[in-house]
Amino acid sequence: MSRLRALQGYLLLRLLLAPLMLWTIVTVVFLLLRATPGDAVDAILGPRAPVAVKEALRAQLGLAQPLWQQYLNYLGQLLRFDLGTSLTSQGEAVTKIIAQHFPATAELGLASLAIAFGLGVL
């Protein structure tokens, strides 16, 4: 019975630490994206775009706001599963793109799992 109690304690600890781990990952990703060299607006529009157009895009993307406000907006969008619009697919929603490709991804993952399991058992 003590093994069962130890397993329950371990699982409870992992479940309680999962939100902290997810928050840490989200925060690190946000900071790494902001720490990369270069400007996202220059990458989208090119360095020769007019300054007024660049500033308008910065305001539209929320990059003109302070970092803490960008972070709170980022967290809020993630909690609503709003991943924004694609910059390469004519403004299509990222969640829609993910949903379109998820069946193929799941099929590939299950096939690789079956192969790995089969080889692992042998």
Results as ranks from 00 to 15, higher is better:
L33P: 01
L4I: 07
L32Y: 07
A93F: 05
H101A: 10
P103Y: 06
A18H: 11
L32W: 05
T27R: 03
T95G: 08
V51S: 12
A111L: 10
V41F: 03
L16T: 13
L12K: 15
G76N: 12
L22V: 14
E55P: 01
V26W: 01
V121F: 01
L45N: 05
L7H: 10
V51Y: 14
A35P: 04
Q100L: 09
A93D: 12
A93C: 10
H101I: 06
D39Q: 03
A49C: 09
Q8A: 15
T105R: 10
Y71S: 09
F117C: 07
A104L: 12
E107Q: 10
A40K: 10
V41G: 04
L83R: 01
A93S: 08
L108D: 07
A64R: 00
S86W: 03
L79Q: 14
H101F: 09
L122N: 04
A111Y: 06
R58N: 07
V41C: 08
A111V: 08
A43P: 03
D42P: 07
L75H: 02
V28C: 06
H101G: 09
G76Q: 10
S2V: 03
T95I: 09
V26G: 02
T24D: 06
L45W: 09
Q60P: 00
S112D: 05
D39A: 04
L67I: 14
A99M: 06
R5T: 12
T88C: 04
D39K: 00
S2R: 13
L110E: 03
T95P: 00
R3G: 01
I44C: 09
L15Q: 14
E55C: 08
L22S: 04
A106V: 15
L33H: 06
H101P: 04
V94A: 01
D82E: 14
M1S: 11
L17P: 00
A111W: 04
L72E: 07
V29A: 09
V53H: 12
